[in-house]
Design a protein around this nucleic acid. Structure first.
Lengths: 154, 154
DNA sequence: TCCTATCTAGATATATATATCTGGATATTC
DNA sequence: GAATATCCAGATATATATATCTAGATAGGA
């Protein structure tokens, strides 16, 4: 497992929001149903993303969640730093608490260039790019393609 | 988290075994104490590695664990396929159950080359290489450098 | 003002990974 | 054969991640 389920839900949700018109807030339950993900759990994740300033939340009728202004430019790295914790790029593959250039595990220097590729990818991949990819219709955001009821309504 | 703690313990233990003279079996409790890892848990892991034919086990007095013949050539990939499960290289970053070139998530093709780097590393990195690195004394296998008692005895 | 729909916060429940315990099987030594 | 040291297998315990529940706060509309 590369990242937690929480992170996966977070990224999926944010990509979905980036594909939606930014005027109206998006409802937690709509995101959850679109992604086929448990709504109460997703709500918790969206709350923490809001606390992390990746999105705005509005209560009451007509409430919901919006990407912050310029949210298109949010990178995967920014999301994962929130959901996986601020040290997730620094963890040692072997699990050592201390593993740096000075005091390294035997994998450290072999892993370093690969890790750099991962970090580069996470930093250069924005919600905008991913949302555009989804909008072409060639890529899937979720396993189940929404529930039938939603599809018929739309 | 890139791999589970179980996988980390497994790799650490196997590297350690590769640094030991292959004649005599290595004891679970010695590995555990050297790595600073819970012995009963490590025992379970070693058992599964033995079932996966990465090492031999011997019961009774003078028992213990040995790398199988040619065990030096075991790769990280072989280990992780056992400890993470046979599909761990195929899992989708976003968590989709189905994510292949035909039916892909929006990250699929961006992730593919990075994933290839990871797989290449895992497949080309053998216990032999890692053991040699450790034997130079420049690299650490564990956080705690064995317990003092062991060091004094040695 | 009242009703409804949303997010919010904290408590609770469930599943999974991690860790431990217990009794037994096996092999060596005496 | 008895004593000891190891691995083995299954049951149990604990910690963490995942998921749900409940009551409340907020905002809009009738």
């Amino acid at each position: 497992m590369l990242v937690s389920r929480t992170s996966q839900y977070a990224v999926q949700a944010l990509i979905y929001m980036a594909t939606q018109p930014s005027a109206a807030p998006v409802l937690n339950k709509d995101i959850a149903s679109r992604l086929g993900v448990p709504a109460p759990y997703l709500a918790k994740i969206l709350q923490s993303l809001a606390k992390g300033n990746l999105l705005f939340s509005f209560r009451g009728r007509l409430g919901g969640f919006c990407l912050r202004e310029g949210g298109d430019k949010i990178t995967l790295m920014q999301i994962l730093l929130l959901t996986e914790g601020p040290t997730f790029t620094q963890t040692c593959l072997l699990g050592l608490k201390k593993c740096s250039d000075e005091t390294a595990c035997p994998l450290h220097f072999r892993w370093a260039p690969v890790k750099k590729k991962i970090i580069d990818l996470l930093e250069e991949t924005t919600l905008e790019k991913l949302a555009k990819a989804v909008e072409t219709g060639k890529y899937r955001l979720a396993d189940v393609p929404g529930n039938l009821f939603d599809e018929i309504k739309a």
